[in-house]
């Protein structure tokens, strides 16, 4: 690969920022014959120096971009995939110089770790897991959780990476009797893990013992919800769910995310907040990301919307640029930026 460098893009027009708190700071162009699928950020170490890097993924390649001066980036490594397409990047907190990716067609068939050999700086791939994988999430303390189907049951597996990204430990959690579709860490309770299931239940595990602590039915109106984040406060669990099946004509507006409160002792829950689009905007949740108290979603309309979960309202709208719909959105793990991507490999970095 030749080195590729990005241009500094022009500042966005004010009209793009309605109601506005996003400022365009950088643009990466990753030309590829295949469809662009994901973006992420991570720390990468070279010669004892850790740098905040951007990872871009298209169906047949994953690239690592290192920062140059003044918001420019250069592509330094690319891992190629010829057999199974890339579906998503799996961000694993506390892991440095190692990228995890999920490969598959409609469902995840493999999870791989991407790294560079210290001897010759060449790109390497390690197969971490294969099978029919329903959900995967990177957890703090260099852990990765996945749920997969076998012929007779479901496996919930935790992989723990060593500090150098090498030698992995394996542990299993007790599976619930229905398919787990998504996981969320519980902020403020490091050993708790939460999941949402196909039949609309919330399940809770103890990560240390592997015990399944509780299965809780939430109200029918949360159907097909996916958990993104959970917070433990005052003996209650506050869970942020996305609502891909929300009715756009609900009297409250178009709910994209929802905050529910669950009492883990009684398994009772109530809806606390709906995060809707501003009046006049339509679209349903396609995909999104939640970090701290901020949520971002790509909508079926091709627009990106962000919410402050504490204030309860939409804070920014990012309509499609150059007549191209947005396809994916991520909050940066290395600073407070929003990364937004289009199918053709364009990734825009916004200061939030």
């Amino acid at each position: 690969d030749t080195l590729e460098q990005t241009e500094i893009a022009d500042p966005p027009a004010l009209s793009n920022l309605s109601p506005g708190s996003l400022q365009l700071v950088s643009k990466l162009k990753n030309p590829s014959g295949s469809c662009s699928v994901d973006v992420s950020t991570m720390w990468w170490e070279t010669a004892g120096c850790k740098e905040p890097c951007i990872i871009t993924a298209c169906e047949d390649a994953v690239s690592l971009w290192k920062p140059l001066d003044t918001w420019q980036w250069e592509k330094v490594y690319t891992w190629h995939f010829t057999e199974i397409p890339v579906l998503q990047i799996i961000s694993v907190p506390d892991v440095c110089s190692l990228v995890c990716v999920a490969l598959g067609n409609l469902e995840i068939r493999e999870i791989r770790a991407l790294l560079c050999s210290t001897d010759d700086e060449s790109e390497k791939q390690l197969l971490l897991k294969s099978g029919h994988i329903n959900a995967v999430l990177g957890l703090t303390q260099r852990r990765l959780v996945s749920s997969s189907r076998t012929l007779f049951d479901q496996q919930i597996e935790i992989l723990t990476f060593a500090e150098d990204g090498g030698n992995k430990e394996k542990q299993f959690l007790m599976p619930p009797d229905e398919t787990v579709l998504a996981f969320a860490e519980v902020h403020g309770m490091q050993e708790a893990l939460l999941g949402t299931t196909l039949m609309n239940n919330i399940v809770l595990w103890n990560l240390k013992t592997g015990q399944l602590l509780k299965k809780m039915q939430v109200d029918d109106s949360y159907q097909a919800s996916i958990c993104h984040k959970a917070y433990s406060e005052m003996g209650l669990l506050f869970v942020v769910l996305s609502r891909p099946c929300a009715n756009e004509r609900e009297w409250l507006g178009s709910p994209v995310f929802q905050l529910i409160v669950v009492n883990p002792k009684t398994a009772l829950s109530v809806g606390m907040m709906l995060y809707c689009l501003p009046h006049g905007q339509t679209g349903r949740f396609l995909e999104g990301d939640v970090k701290d108290n901020f949520a971002a979603a790509v909508l079926t309309s091709g627009t990106i919307a962000t919410w402050d979960l504490l204030l309860g309202h939409c804070t920014a709208l990012l309509p499609p640029i150059s007549e191209q719909n947005w396809c994916f959105v991520k909050w940066s793990d290395t600073d407070f930026h929003l990364l937004a991507g289009q199918k053709d490999g364009s990734v825009f970095v916004y200061r939030y």
Binding site: N206, Q211, L236, P264
Partner: peptide, 23 residues
């Protein structure tokens, strides 16, 4: 909604559920 709708709350719910759940 009110907190009363959720039943009695325990600050030690994680430890309590861990001791009640099957090993």
């Amino acid at each position: 909604c009110s907190k009363a709708d959720l039943g009695p709350v325990s600050l030690n719910w994680f430890e309590e559920l861990t001791s009640e759940a099957p090993p």
